[in-house]
Amino acid sequence: MNSSTTPIALAASVSDDAGLPIAAVERETGLGKDTLRVWERRYGFPTPLRDASGDRVYSLDQVQQLRLISRLLGIGLRPGKVVGLDQATLQDLLTQRSPVQNTVLSKTKSPSSGADLVIGDLLHAIGAHDPHTLRYSLSHAQLRMGLAPFVTDLVAPLTTAVGEAWAQGRFEIFEEHLYTEVITGVLRHAIASLALQPVSQGPKVLLTTVPQEQHSLGLLMVEALLALEGCTCVSLGTQTPLSDIVEAAQAHQVDVVALSFSNLHKAAVVRASLRELRAQLLASTALWVGGACTALYQWPVAGISTVQHLSGLQPLVAQWRHAN
């Protein structure tokens, strides 16, 4: 959701006899260059052409397939089950795996709850290219609901619904970018509007992602909930090298490092990264991880706390304060 290439720019960069270079495919899909090369050898997909310099170039059809594959990996499917499937099959799998979001997105079904009605209206504003209505509706919902329910009950499912709409071809990248920019502004304003605590309650939390993790909206939702709990947050944005995370944690004297993982990485890579980071951080620095990556919860790593749902942040903060 944080790709910097819009469909217009993307189309302008591809001629009839060429395609996207691997760096652009990485930005468009969130799939790392090494992952694409491994899949090419292991599964025979993708099947890039070569440009005059011998570098890989990928057709737009293959990029769309890779986008769908990326979404399916994000909801728990294994690469071996989906890599190389055609677009129609991938979209069918996505529909089967996401019945709630597809009910919300359906134009022929009536939403089943008040929250679905609000989400349906917001999706309509995105599709109608109406940032004013989108911003007003989100800001009004935040004031009416309060920040914590707004994040957990509206922003989280809406973000999932927007992602599904993009994967199924209902939204273009520029429409997804519109949503990301608007909701980022709304959340930043809400965080800035919180009354500052006279004395920081702790913990002081460093927020970021490891390399190849480009999604920042999840971090912002976590930051909003932590700020509401009176925590001090230091956000580094996305894709911070492990060594820099360690240096930043020491420089800012944080109590906690919090990382978000999607399901794009192999489980072994995630576990190795976490073990390395845990070994390099001070023993007194807690390490919290969360996100859609199933490996986080299937194979716990000693000294690391997992937060599978946003609702788990408040108990974790309370536990830290009790221990300190």
Rank of each mutant, 00 (worst) to 15 (best):
A272G: 08
A272K: 09
R275T: 13
R275H: 07
E276R: 14
L277N: 07
L277F: 01
L277P: 14
R278M: 01
R278I: 00
R278D: 01
A279K: 13
Q280I: 00
Q280G: 09
Q280A: 14
L281I: 03
L282E: 14
T285I: 01
T285F: 07
A286G: 14
L287E: 15
L287Q: 14
L287G: 09
W288S: 11
V289T: 01
G290E: 06
G290A: 06
A292I: 04
A292W: 04
C293T: 07
T294W: 02
T294A: 14
T294E: 11
A295I: 07
L296H: 11
L296E: 10
L296Y: 04
Y297Q: 11
Y297W: 04
Q298L: 08
Q298D: 14
Q298M: 13
W299T: 15
W299V: 15
P300K: 06
V301K: 10
G303C: 04
G303Q: 11
I304S: 04
S305L: 08
S305D: 13
V307M: 13
V307Q: 11
V307T: 06
Q308P: 05
H309N: 00
S311Y: 03
G312T: 05
G312K: 07
G312Q: 10
L313S: 03
L313I: 02
L313T: 02
Q314I: 03
Q314G: 05
Q314Y: 10
P315L: 02
V317C: 05
W320R: 01
